[in-house]
Structures are given as structure tokens and as C-alpha cells.
Simulated scan of single mutants.
Amino acid sequence: MIGYRPSGVVAGCLYLAAERAGFCLSQRRIADIAGTLPNTLRSCRDELLEVVTPVVEGVLSLIVTSIITCVLECSDK
């Protein structure tokens, strides 16, 4: 993903994974946590959707469920 800061890519990954895992998180909340903007998050998510395969999506959901839980706990402190 050329042209994006790591925080934007992470935000896009987290949002995509949160959607797939059934978490109800707003784009604004994820962007704020990652230190980026919602439009960057959406752009990264859209690019990720072009390359994500079902296998990658399954693995991503399992891993990110743990990550999202941790991020939410840390951001609420």
C-alpha cells in the first residue's frame, strides 16, 4: 500500500476486520485510536478489499478479534 502512513493502513485493517468480526466500531473511533483520518481509513480499506482472499480474511478475523479487544480496553483507560 504505497503512499499511506502505517497508521492509515492499520486503521483500514482494523476497520475491515472489525466489520468482518461483527464489532460495531465507528470509522471515527478507529481513526482516532490509530491517529489518522476517517477518509484515509476508508481509502486503505477499499484497497485492502481488492486483495483480501477468503483465507486471509478468516485468519485476519481471528487475529484481529484479540487486537480490537485489547485496543478498546487500552483506549478506555
Rank of each mutant, 00 (worst) to 15 (best):
C44W: 02
R42L: 13
P6C: 05
R42H: 08
V55M: 00
I68A: 06
P6N: 13
R29A: 11
V9E: 05
T53N: 04
G35Q: 05
G35D: 05
G58N: 13
Y4L: 15
Q27H: 03
T65Y: 08
T65P: 01
E57N: 11
C13W: 06
P38I: 09
G12W: 06
S7F: 01
A17G: 13
A21Y: 03
Q27C: 04
V56R: 01
D76E: 15
L48C: 07
L49S: 12
G3R: 08
F23W: 12
V56D: 09
E50A: 13
T69D: 11
G8W: 02
V52L: 15
L16V: 00
F23D: 01
T40W: 01
C24T: 09
E50Y: 02
P38M: 07
M1Q: 04
I68M: 08
S26K: 05
V52R: 02
A31V: 04
I68Y: 07
P6F: 07
E57M: 07
E50K: 14
I30L: 14
D76Y: 08
I30T: 05
L14P: 02
L37C: 01
E19P: 00
V71M: 08
Q27A: 12
I68D: 04
I30K: 01
T53I: 01
L16M: 12
L49K: 15
S7I: 10
S66L: 10
P54E: 00
E57K: 14
T65S: 13
